[in-house]
């Protein structure tokens, strides 16, 4: 019975805490809450992730990954379908910054573009599981459907030459003669 009583009291404590937090949040205008745009990332992680993503898809005359909203895509999914990858991102991003400090004495986001490219190449070699994850997610965000937060204004689709939405008419209901039915 000990365990079940613990269960109840824990639940109650959690409940009260949650209620208090909710009330406080409402009362002070959610200032305790994440004020950024991110559902999961903190600002530091977002800066590092931006640096990595923008090496995977850099800007040329079309936007870079982050300019096209890839971080929004990744962040939204880390709070949803990609919850299972949260630890990989936490660990991977902090280890990327650790590598950056070790080699250059600065955060990754503060490095020059060529230094960032070198560092991403190093991550690809030394932490390939994390790199492959970020690479897949970056390319999904950049080349996938805009509804998920990336590929803003379908810019990558227009880059490869596909109009979006496609201009496509439909058959008229009274058009066809001799139709089988």
């Amino acid at each position: 019975m000990q365990s079940s009583r613990d269960g109840v009291s824990l639940t109650r404590r959690q409940f009260v805490a949650a209620g208090a937090m909710g009330g406080a949040a409402l009362a002070v205008g959610c200032t305790g809450h994440n004020q950024g745009d991110w559902d999961f990332l903190n600002d530091e992680q977002a800066r590092t992730l931006t640096a990595i993503c923008d090496q995977i898809v850099p800007a040329d005359d079309f936007p870079s990954a982050s300019q096209a909203g890839v971080l929004t895509y990744i962040d939204r999914q880390l709070a949803r379908h990609y919850r299972r990858h949260r630890n990989a991102y936490r660990d991977g991003l902090s280890s990327a910054d650790a590598m950056s400090w070790q080699r250059h004495g600065r955060d990754m986001a503060a490095l020059s573009a060529p230094q960032q490219a070198q560092l991403v190449a190093a991550i690809e070699k030394e932490n390939s599981a994390f790199f492959n994850l970020v690479r897949s997610h970056t390319l999904e965000g950049y080349y996938g459907a805009p509804r998920h937060g990336g590929n803003r204004d379908a810019v990558s689709w227009r880059m490869v030459g596909m109009g979006e939405p496609p201009v496509r008419g439909r058959a008229q209901y009274d058009e066809r003669k001799g139709a089988a039915s």
């Binding site: 800007a59 005359d61 079309f62 936007p63 300019q67 096209a68 909203g69 459907a145 805009p146 509804r147 803003r152 204004d153 379908a154 810019v155 227009r158 880059m159 109009g163 939405p165």
Partner: peptide, 23 residues
């Protein structure tokens, strides 16, 4: 930057936009 890449090139009000039901 994304919206600056215009197929048409000409300036049109941003408010003129097609609501794509799919997306």
């Amino acid at each position: 930057p994304a919206s600056r890449i215009s197929v048409a090139g000409a300036a049109v009000p941003d408010s003129l936009a097609f609501y794509d039901r799919r997306e």
